[in-house]
Structure formats: C-alpha cells, structure tokens
Computed example of a mutant assay.
Amino acid sequence: MSESTQKHAVTAETSNEVPTLFEWMGGREVLSLLMKTFYAKVEKDELLAPLFGRMIADHPEHVAMWMEEVLGGAPRYTDERGGFKTMIRKHRGRNIQPEQRDRWMKLMLETADEINLPRDPEFRSAFVGYLEWGSRRAERNSKPDAEPSKRETVPKWGWGEAKPGTP
C-alpha cells in the first residue's frame, strides 16, 4: 500500500465518513499537478497538440476545477466558470476523433502513474470509470451534428458509480 493510500485509509478508518474521490487522490494540489503535468505532454503530442492548439494558459487549471467538482470537491467550475453548459460549449465543433480520445486517455493514465495518484483498485476503477465516461461524452458532444445535451449540472462521480448513458 502506498504512503498516500495508507494516509487516506487511516483517515477513513478513524472517521465514519467515506472520503470523496477528490479527497482520496490528495485534493486540489494533487489535481492541479496532474493537469499541469498532463497538459504539458498534450502540447508536445503530435496527435493531441492540434486539438489543443489554441489552449489558453490556464486551461489545465480550468480542467482541474471541473475534475474537482466532478470528483466530490467544491463546485468551483460551476461557481467560477459557468457549469456544465460552459464545458459542453468548449467541446462543440472540435470533432474529437476516437484515436485522439484514446491517446488522451493513455496520456492521462500515464500521468496519473507518474505523479503517484493512489493505485488502489477501488480508486483507480472509479477514476478511470469517470475518465472513460467523460471523454466518450466529450468526443460525442464535439461532433458538428451532436444533439444538445439534456444535462444541466456537472456530473458527480463517486466510489463504484457508473452513470447512465445520458450525453
């Protein structure tokens, strides 16, 4: 068991509250590091760089805010960036291709290992479950003919959850 996992396991055992995925992974500082490290790779990746070519400097922080809210942290993306509809608009018309989504996933998971996100199977299953679900919806919502999403709020992801297929 990693030091990070041990720390969280002890906290969980001594309190009756189940930590959120956001808390378990180490909170805002770790999530920010994940996104900064990941997007530095994206900028150099021949398949992904064109998709993110006009990425603003604080894009990694905006994605960290989104992920914080999704994984059980504060609703910063909703409060500061406009919530779900803003995220959908960011993907509209980008026409993300399956191979780009696959590469995005591969780099994200490599980065998660690189920065030592918890490796316990329960966390990784939930984390990867969200990344797969969310990246597939981003791909679908990026198509020029995508139907507008019926969702109004940022999805919330927890331990062992699988969301219905609503885009």
Results as ranks from 00 to 15, higher is better:
121 P>F: 05
43 E>S: 10
12 A>N: 09
35 M>E: 10
60 P>A: 08
160 G>Y: 09
68 E>A: 02
45 D>C: 11
11 T>M: 15
14 T>R: 12
29 E>K: 03
152 E>Q: 14
101 R>V: 07
105 M>F: 05
24 W>H: 15
50 P>G: 04
51 L>I: 12
74 A>M: 00
146 A>I: 09
48 L>M: 11
167 P>K: 08
46 E>R: 06
152 E>I: 03
13 E>D: 06
105 M>A: 13
116 N>A: 04
60 P>S: 02
130 Y>F: 14
109 L>K: 11
50 P>L: 00
55 M>F: 09
105 M>H: 03
21 L>C: 08
71 L>T: 03
44 K>P: 08
118 P>K: 14
166 T>L: 06
157 W>Q: 02
109 L>P: 06
81 R>N: 14
114 E>Q: 10
35 M>C: 14
8 H>Y: 15
146 A>Q: 07
16 N>A: 13
94 R>K: 14
153 T>M: 05
96 I>H: 15
112 A>R: 10
78 T>P: 07
132 E>Q: 09
69 E>L: 00
66 W>C: 02
105 M>S: 06
30 V>E: 04
102 D>P: 05
134 G>V: 09
150 K>E: 13
100 Q>D: 03
163 K>V: 02
95 N>T: 07
6 Q>T: 12
83 G>I: 06
38 F>D: 00
110 E>C: 00
6 Q>K: 15
124 R>T: 10
37 T>F: 10
23 E>F: 03
100 Q>P: 08
82 G>M: 06
2 S>N: 14
164 P>C: 02
146 A>C: 07
122 E>L: 08
78 T>G: 04
112 A>N: 13
115 I>R: 03
67 M>I: 07
3 E>W: 02
136 R>N: 11
38 F>M: 14
166 T>S: 08
104 W>S: 00
64 A>R: 09
52 F>Q: 02
127 F>L: 06
131 L>T: 03
33 L>P: 01
13 E>L: 15
128 V>A: 05
69 E>G: 03
2 S>R: 09
139 E>P: 07
68 E>N: 01
165 G>E: 15
100 Q>I: 10
42 V>M: 03
48 L>Q: 00
138 A>I: 05
13 E>G: 06
72 G>K: 07
58 D>S: 14
34 L>S: 12
2 S>Y: 04
19 P>A: 12
25 M>D: 04
95 N>Y: 12
163 K>D: 11
93 G>W: 11
35 M>I: 00
59 H>F: 14
1 M>G: 15
100 Q>K: 09
118 P>H: 11
2 S>L: 10
145 D>M: 10
161 E>M: 09
74 A>W: 01
27 G>L: 04
75 P>I: 09
121 P>D: 10
30 V>Q: 10
144 P>H: 14
149 S>V: 08
89 R>I: 04
152 E>V: 05
136 R>A: 12
122 E>T: 08
72 G>H: 05
112 A>W: 06
98 P>L: 00
163 K>I: 06
14 T>F: 15
94 R>Q: 05
107 L>N: 13
109 L>A: 02
9 A>G: 06
83 G>P: 11
136 R>E: 08
128 V>P: 01
8 H>R: 15
140 R>G: 10
47 L>A: 08
158 G>A: 02
159 W>S: 00
112 A>T: 05
133 W>Y: 12
23 E>Q: 14
25 M>F: 12
137 R>Q: 12
71 L>K: 00
